[in-house]
Design a protein around this nucleic acid. Structure first.
Lengths: 205, 205
DNA sequence: TAGATTGTTAATCGATTAACAATC
DNA sequence: TAGATTGTTAATCGATTAACAATC
């Protein structure tokens, strides 16, 4: 892995490659080519080769890429060759869905706590988790050294909670609240808002 | 609105502007500038002016943009100046969350049906909806002339259902299944996968 | 009028693609 | 060896930014 700055647009494609390769591995495939991978993910073969080559020479002329080897390398690059503890803030419908989601474990994540500010929810169980009070958020997150949070609360409270997460040392926020968050630039935010995603498609209808 | 082809990257920013403007309007603001809007959404003022100017001259020198007017124009451009009927396929946790989500109505969408293939779920209620059998998907979607679907089923079944949606005339799919879908190129797909979004951030941790 | 801000042009910057030597 | 496919270069294409005349 070289020291140059890699553009974010390249980083954003790596998880897509990772997922497709995992899928191939699950189907028992051993090797693939930039051509084949490109067809799977809808990206040109040239771009895939260029993206991957930013980090090293992981392929072999004539035969392509070993799927297991490339998986290992991509996981290493994306730092999901380990397990990250993640919290959920907001025990509504989406918080519940995420708490029960089985897809995190084999992709590098481990939900460890779920918070809500509603006192009537605090103490209730969601699967193995007991809902904790948002009042204790900063303290608990600091103590457990959590770096990643998923925010599933209504928009009006989102900025305030984001500030608390930042204060507690969180560096990556997956925001389901339909609002832009202001955070220091060393904190990353990804947005998931179904209405926004739908509006990106209606233009073409 | 001119006839030239507008790049998708510009289209993808419009819903973000729309949401921020809606937020400003809700707070009683009447006008804004490219500068102010840019600060809200984290995009440069020059780019916002350039994006908006692709579609017409909606601002005034010296005073900026009328929020209501720009909202109207953006809604028109994105075709959310109307209400689109939308279906949900998959009555699991995410399907339930989307069925109950209150944020669609004022952003151009109206959930009208929810499907599941599990016979033990079919007939059950989610709020006002009765879960319908996926076996009747094509027929019902065609009859109601639905163009937009949200797919919230496990990955292994997603491609098969996507094929049915396409066959039924759906032109936009919001896919929550962690898998790439192959669809004709006149059908749009947007992907929501929390693990992929998280992996886009771990690189920077 | 003076100040502010647009819409647009030209310059810069960055990303994608095509092509091919290297080599497995 | 012959065929296939990488990694990389150069060319192309597209997006962003800076700057400013126009004008509200």
């Amino acid at each position: 892995m070289n020291a140059e700055k890699i553009p974010d647009i390249i980083i954003s494609r790596l998880p897509v490659y990772l997922r497709a390769l995992q899928h191939m591995a699950d189907n028992g495939l051993k090797t693939t080519s930039s051509q084949e991978l490109g067809e799977h993910v809808g990206i040109s073969a040239a771009q895939i080769r260029k993206d991957i080559s930013q980090f090293g020479e992981f392929g072999k002329q004539g035969t392509g890429y070993s799927i297991e080897y490339l998986l290992d390398k991509l996981r290493e690059i994306l730092k999901v060759d380990r397990r990250w503890d993640v919290i959920i803030v907001g025990a509504g419908d989406i918080g519940h869905a995420l708490a029960r989601y089985q897809g995190f474990a084999n992709r590098g994540f481990n939900v460890v706590m779920i918070f809500d500010k509603d006192k009537s929810k605090v103490g209730q169980k969601i699967g193995e988790f007991t809902i904790e009070d948002t009042a204790n958020l900063i303290e608990k997150v600091k103590a457990a050294d959590i770096k990643i949070a998923m925010l599933t609360i209504p928009a009006p409270a989102a900025q305030e909670i984001a500030d608390k997460l930042v204060q507690a040392g969180v560096k990556a926020i997956l925001n389901y609240a339909p609002i832009n968050l202001n955070v220091p630039k060393n904190v990353k935010v990804q947005y998931i808002d179904p209405a926004t995603h739908l509006q990106r498609m209606t233009y073409y209808l």
